[in-house]
Amino acid sequence: MEKILRKLPEAEPADSQRLLFFEPHPDALPIYEVLEQKILKDIPGVRVKFQKTQISFYNKHMFACASFMRVRKKKDCPEPFLVVTFSLPHQVVSPRIDVATEPYPGRWTHHVLTASKEEIDDELMEWIREAAAFSDRK
């Protein structure tokens, strides 16, 4: 990773931000790349914002994000992992949902711990597409 970071000034700003975000967890980058690729392919007009603790996906509002937030005890987290978070107007009940909370009426935030590229599948993408449509209606 050190050699890559030395080349950051030559990289595109988004590429630099992506590399810095994944510096502590480089093995999770392939999971994120599949997530980003599918979101950008499936949902028109998405903006991606890199922050210190998460990467957020926006249309009219934020509808999903990727982070390393602990949703399980450390000993129960696989390596690598990436937490995908999305909001919907209803609770999704699924064994894949690690945490679901209702921060205010009519908005449920769901956290899904993903451990491989294969877990960025049709089911997860359907929830994310629904979250984007929900966000766009606000």
Rank of each mutant, 00 (worst) to 15 (best):
53 T>P: 02
33 E>T: 13
90 H>F: 10
81 F>A: 02
121 D>E: 03
121 D>F: 09
18 R>H: 03
104 Y>W: 12
68 F>L: 10
66 A>P: 00
116 S>M: 04
112 V>E: 13
21 F>N: 12
114 T>R: 13
31 I>S: 02
20 L>K: 15
39 I>Y: 14
20 L>W: 14
120 I>P: 00
127 W>M: 01
58 Y>P: 07
108 W>E: 09
124 L>K: 01
18 R>S: 06
88 L>W: 13
87 S>Q: 09
11 A>Q: 13
62 M>Q: 12
49 K>G: 02
13 P>K: 12
9 P>K: 08
47 R>G: 06
72 R>V: 01
75 K>W: 06
10 E>D: 13
103 P>G: 04
57 F>H: 03
97 I>G: 08
66 A>K: 14
46 V>S: 11
77 C>N: 07
39 I>H: 05
32 Y>S: 01
101 T>E: 12
53 T>F: 11
98 D>F: 01
36 E>W: 07
54 Q>F: 11
138 K>T: 15
41 K>P: 00
70 R>Q: 10
118 E>K: 13
59 N>R: 15
79 E>V: 10
72 R>C: 05
41 K>A: 13
88 L>N: 13
22 F>Y: 14
52 K>R: 13
43 I>L: 15
45 G>Q: 07
110 H>P: 03
118 E>C: 01
55 I>Y: 07
132 A>K: 11
65 C>F: 15
107 R>Y: 10
138 K>M: 15
25 H>K: 15
136 D>N: 15
131 A>T: 08
26 P>C: 14
128 I>D: 00
20 L>C: 15
91 Q>H: 09
122 D>R: 01
130 E>I: 00
72 R>E: 09
119 E>H: 02
88 L>I: 15
40 L>Q: 06
129 R>M: 01
16 S>C: 14
90 H>L: 11
7 K>C: 04
124 L>R: 04
134 F>T: 05
83 V>M: 14
78 P>S: 09
16 S>R: 10
89 P>G: 12
78 P>E: 06
65 C>H: 14
128 I>C: 03
12 E>R: 10
9 P>G: 05
40 L>D: 00
135 S>F: 15
46 V>G: 03
123 E>V: 03
104 Y>E: 13
8 L>M: 05
95 P>W: 07
66 A>D: 09
105 P>G: 05
47 R>V: 00
77 C>Q: 12
62 M>S: 06
53 T>H: 14
14 A>G: 02
97 I>H: 02
32 Y>R: 01
36 E>A: 07
61 H>M: 04
124 L>W: 03
60 K>V: 05
111 H>Y: 11
46 V>N: 03
46 V>I: 08
29 L>K: 05
123 E>T: 08
28 A>S: 11
108 W>R: 06
60 K>E: 13
50 F>I: 05
47 R>A: 09
19 L>V: 02
92 V>G: 08
32 Y>M: 05
84 V>K: 03
102 E>D: 11
72 R>H: 10
98 D>P: 02
136 D>H: 13
89 P>K: 14
27 D>I: 04
18 R>V: 04
96 R>N: 10
131 A>E: 10
124 L>P: 14
52 K>L: 11
9 P>E: 06
10 E>Q: 09
44 P>W: 01
8 L>C: 07
15 D>W: 13
113 L>K: 01
